[in-house]
């Protein structure tokens, strides 16, 4: 492999600065001791982290976001596994159409989804609740779950399943003992990616949240609309640190490249 020249490395350094600066600045500002946004020039303070304790709504929103993400990605995976097994390995009329439909939420702006779901739920007389939020997130994360499960199920050797059948396995046994364990990496990474997508979603959720079911990103967004103070910095900093931890674990487990770019040549 050829090495990068000094010019390329200088460019790279600037890009890294550009990418990391806004993330780092949030984490640094969170440690200020002053009452307004500023760099902690006179020593680090945990004041604004303690301040989160006085705002139980942030903790409640954090809990809401966790539950919402867990629930919607679990349902997405349960729906995506049979669909991926059929689309990835069987040939049937309408296969391309189904795949396009299932992937179409990726093409639809979340704002449009939010407006459409708000209209749908109010028209249908369901109102807006935690469950409508789960439904909305399900639509958004489904393509991610499907994509990752699809890549593993496409690579599955049909003969392995045939071998199980020839040895006497029933359909259900074959699925439980052979197919599912073999596509498990796709299922797990699909679930995790869905979870993160759901946890971070803000645009659609703004429309279909209620005061009782406000997710953390929505809570932050609405708070910022009124004022930007070090409290949002400390909440964001915690969010960032948690994400980075998950990210490093994911990278160790699956490789970030495979998760985001798709399976490469290696």
């Amino acid at each position: 492999m050829n090495r990068n020249g000094p010019l390329a490395l200088a460019f790279h350094a600037l890009v890294v600065l550009f990418v990391t600066a806004p993330i780092l600045v949030v984490c640094v500002v969170a440690f200020t001791s002053r009452g307004y946004l500023s760099l902690p020039t006179d020593g680090l303070s945990l004041r604004w982290f303690y301040a989160i304790g006085d705002r139980p709504e942030f903790l409640a929103s954090f809990r809401t976001s966790l539950w919402l993400a867990a629930l919607s990605s679990t349902i997405a995976v349960v729906l995506a596994v049979p669909a991926a097994l059929a689309i990835g390995r069987l040939k049937f009329a309408g296969r391309g159409l189904l795949l396009s439909l299932f992937q179409s939420p990726l093409m639809i702006p979340h704002l449009v989804l939010g407006i459409a779901l708000l209209r749908f739920f109010t028209e249908a007389g369901l109102g807006i609740s935690g469950w409508t939020l789960v439904a909305g997130h399900l639509v958004v994360v489904f393509p991610f779950a499907l994509r990752l499960i699809l890549t593993t199920s496409v690579g599955l050797d049909q003969q392995i399943e045939n071998a199980a059948v020839s040895l006497g396995a029933s359909r259900w046994t074959k699925f439980r003992r052979i197919t599912l364990p073999l596509i498990l990496p796709g299922v797990v990474s699909g679930w995790i990616l869905s979870f993160i997508q759901s946890f971070d979603e803000v645009t659609m959720s703004v429309f279909i949240s209620t005061p009782h079911t406000t997710t953390l990103p929505v809570r932050l967004f609405l708070y910022i609309q009124d004022n930007i103070d070090p409290l949002v910095a400390s909440v964001s900093a915690i969010l960032i640190v948690l994400t980075v931890i998950v990210m490093v674990v994911l990278d160790r487990l699956f490789g970030m490249e495979r998760l985001l770019v798709g399976p490469g040549r290696s």
């Binding site: 806004p22 993330i23 600045v25 990103p217 932050l220 930007i228 910095a233 964001s236 960032i240």
Partner: peptide, 12 residues
């Protein structure tokens, strides 16, 4: 990382 958190960084 949450879009809100990243944008907040830019606001700062």
């Amino acid at each position: 990382i949450s879009v809100v958190a990243r944008t907040l960084g830019w606001a700062m």
